[in-house]
Design a protein around this nucleic acid. Structure first.
Lengths: 233, 233
DNA sequence: AACCCATTAGGTACGACTAATTCAAGAGTG
DNA sequence: CACTCTTGAATTAGTCGTACCTAATGGGTT
């Protein structure tokens, strides 16, 4: 899933990427292409392709006579799904989870408002279906199935917004929600209030009530902020 | 600026990237590495590195025995600054500008609210300075200087939010604002109301009034939406 | 329909050469 | 003597071309 692992250069990236994003190489660290190639036991061609990809993510910068230098974190392409996955898989996970949750709190309410204006009949139906699925699995430790519907719900909202930038955050939200279920405190059944909110969002979108859809979604994301103690109770 | 043009593979990307993002090659189109290498008069190694970068942006997919196929627009990494620049430079510019402006309307108000909570004294001072700079250049066709301070203002807000995801949108906002001044209808002096709003945002942040900073910024971004006729007057 | 094999285009490896940049030694200058 | 400028040697990425490997594909055979 996280590993597209296609080809040798993919394998190299699966090791180097997480290492860099985890801060194993401090900003300014210098790597040499040849040494890396030797270390990973691949040809220089393969290593060069891997470096090019890291370079396109602004994780490193390649300069003649110097080598491959690690760029400061502030310059990374933190919206690259691959970078997000690497960071979520490493020591930076908590921090990354917080950043993304704050991003969600900004984007999703607006996306829901737009979805209320632009959602197709089919998307409205999907939304209702997802909400019902959440209700059906909200009790009896069915977290797995609950999560599936939760992820689907938010994905539909983002897609229905009609904004491509919002739509592409579907994967990010999916990883945040999944991460919360897997690694965070969520042994108990989900909060009934949250489930209800999702149902009401689906209703608001179906009723073309943008303001209500936005406000209700804001309540959902605010809840997510509270879970991570980003907001005081 | 848009061209980092470092090396031959950079030159290839500067041509291929815009072509693909402009839709010159419809989704599913098949390119051959060898043909491309011949067309651009570079070696296969260089072309392969370029393809790897395009692949990491999810613009294309490379498969054996098939070739390099162009992926559908919905799968592109639309947050990649390079992709954004390519699209802003091509036929997709209006659409991209709208998407980004909607994104701004979601992110910037929340960022401003956070900035009011987390901005350092220095950042508060910078903000005030930028706002004053906007006022000083808001009359007499000083659009150039006005733009500089406008861009700086929004950049400081995004940075002061303390959220890395927000901070990285500084470049995007900069390009949107620059684009508006250069290509859109903005021969006249900026709207005095907008200038005043910026001053008041700076005040709100300085006063640690998160709610007010958020609301005022929402008015700014709403104004931007109106300019592009995304919202009805 | 199931299977096999030739074709094809990308994947990998290696070696030679190029070019840019750094760094240091040495000449020149105040 | 200290400082600056020039120059050249060392170093590392950049480019190229070739050869060979691998795996999908598509057609032909059983």
């Amino acid at each position: 899933m996280s590993t597209r692992g296609r080809g040798l250069h993919g394998h190299v990236l699966d090791t180097l990427g997480p290492a860099i994003t985890a801060g194993e190489y401090p900003p300014g660290s210098v790597l040499r292409t040849d040494e890396l190639a030797q270390h990973f036991e691949v040809s220089r061609s393969v290593m060069r392709e891997a470096v090019r990809v890291l370079e396109s993510m602004h994780l490193v910068e390649s300069r003649r006579r110097v080598g491959v230098t690690v760029r400061p974190k502030a310059e990374w392409n933190v919206y690259d799904p691959q970078v997000i996955r690497w960071r979520l898989a490493g020591a930076d996970r908590p921090h990354q989870l917080r950043s993304l949750t704050v991003l969600r709190s900004a984007v999703e309410p607006v996306a829901a408002g737009l979805a209320a204006q632009h959602a197709t009949a089919e998307q409205c139906a999907e939304l209702t279906e997802c909400a019902l699925g959440m209700v059906a699995n909200s009790r009896g430790h069915r977290l797995e199935q609950y999560l599936v519907h939760d992820v689907a719900f938010h994905r539909v909202v983002l897609n229905a917004s009609g904004n491509e930038m919002f739509a592409r955050l579907g994967d990010v939200v999916a990883e945040v929600l999944t991460g919360r279920t897997q690694h965070e405190v969520m042994f108990e059944d989900p909060d009934p209030a949250a489930v209800t909110l999702h149902v009401r969002v689906a209703e608001a979108v179906r009723a073309r009530d943008a303001a209500r859809a936005e406000e209700l979604t804001r309540q959902i994301t605010t809840g997510a902020l509270h879970e991570l103690d980003i907001l005081a109770p």
